[in-house]
Simulated assay, not measured.
Amino acid sequence: MTTTGTTLVIGATGTTGSRTAARLTAAGHRVKAAGRHAATVPGAEPVRFDWYAPATHTDALDGADRVYLIPPLGDSDPAAVMLPFLRRARAAGVRRAVLLSSSAVAEGGPAVGAVHQALPGLFDEWAVLRPSWFMQNFTGNHAHAVGIRESGTILTATGNGRIGFVDADDIAAVAVRALTDGSAPNTDLVLTGPQALSYDEVAAIMTEATNKPVVHRRITHARLRDRLTAHMPMEFAGLLADMDRAIAEGAEDRTTDTVQRLTGRPPHDLRAVLKRELALGG
């Protein structure tokens, strides 16, 4: 594959950013790997970037003609810092923007939904990735993964609700296509895995994968909100708890063919991803 310009990957040390940057460099594309401490990605140019430090934005944007956007974590109003940056990016020569949002947040919805709504008016070439919950939440450093390792417990307020959990590698594969294809998607893309699973079903799969008992412990929406408030701003904790309630009501019980359509292969299933991640020490 020939190079298509220079892509600024914001959040290049994160779950999808690191994978997207690695796929881009492996395919021969020029990448600026951005993070608060200048992300190190083989083959990419490291650059420091902080959403809340506009002085870091100039060097990050220099020479970039497309950008992969990871919103600031834990911010219930990311548009306040993202929209000024995006206007600056357009003026600096960025012509394509791909935004990571969520299947739970529609255009014009809360948090990053406002950025989604503004994106088509800022760039002629754009896409909004709206993945379901990550399969990597059960490995690594996510609260679910920590709970599984420490007590064999997954704690949610989702009841019997099902989710089309998606592999972060599949998200990155779609991101690369959205960033580098000759024509931008110019739409939002809901990304899921091949099947919708309840957390009870996930716990059973985790038990099988780890050879250790894992259970799903159900709690109320209010209790989840209160637990989350101990670790993040109250408004954002409430937003996350509301997402669990929506899952319980069936909002995420779906699958899509987006990964298959854009990558030419089916999305990975949870058993295969757990086998891969656990073998890597996740």
Rank of each mutant, 00 (worst) to 15 (best):
S101G: 13
A26H: 04
R177N: 10
T256I: 10
V94Y: 12
N137E: 07
W133A: 14
I163P: 04
L155P: 05
T6Y: 06
L179D: 01
T40G: 05
R225I: 00
D188G: 13
T210E: 10
I219Y: 02
A34F: 09
A33I: 02
T16I: 09
G28Q: 07
D200Q: 14
M1Q: 03
A44M: 05
G93K: 08
L228I: 10
A209E: 12
G121L: 10
R96P: 14
V98W: 00
R217F: 02
D170M: 11
S76E: 07
A251Y: 05
R36D: 08
V41G: 01
L228A: 09
D65E: 11
R88G: 13
R36H: 13
A127M: 02
N141C: 00
F85D: 15
E208F: 01
G28I: 11
G14I: 10
T40F: 00
A118Q: 13
Q195H: 09
I219K: 01
D253Y: 02
D65W: 05
V214I: 00
G238C: 10
G159H: 12
G11F: 11
T153D: 07
D253H: 11
L119M: 05
A172G: 11
N137Q: 11
R23W: 00
A246W: 14
A12W: 10
Q117D: 14
N141V: 10
R48P: 11
A173I: 03
T139K: 02
H142R: 09
T180E: 07
G164S: 05
A92G: 08
E208L: 11
D124Y: 01
R265H: 15
K275F: 01
L191K: 08
A92E: 06
V174W: 00
I148N: 00
V115L: 09
G140W: 08
D257N: 08
V273D: 05
V112I: 15
R245T: 14
T229D: 12
V214D: 03
A157N: 05
T6K: 08
A241D: 00
R218E: 03
A230R: 15
E125K: 04
G281N: 05
T3C: 07
M1A: 06
P194D: 12
I205K: 13
S183Q: 15
P185I: 12
A44H: 06
H57E: 11
F138H: 13
F49G: 04
P233Y: 08
H221V: 06
R130H: 07
R30S: 15
A64T: 02
A184V: 12
E249I: 09
V41R: 01
R227A: 02
A79L: 06
G5V: 00
I219H: 00
A53P: 03
A145G: 07
E249G: 11
R218M: 01
I171F: 00
D65P: 05
H37A: 12
S102T: 13
T156E: 06
T153W: 01
V9D: 03
D170C: 13
V47R: 07
V128A: 14
L228M: 14
P78Y: 05
A89M: 14
L262N: 08
E125P: 06
Q136C: 03
V94P: 14
F165E: 11
L189K: 05
T210D: 10
A44E: 02
M232W: 12
V47E: 03
P78T: 09
M135G: 01
R23F: 00
G121P: 11
D50K: 07
A64F: 08
R23V: 04
P110Y: 15
R254G: 01
R36F: 08
D226T: 03
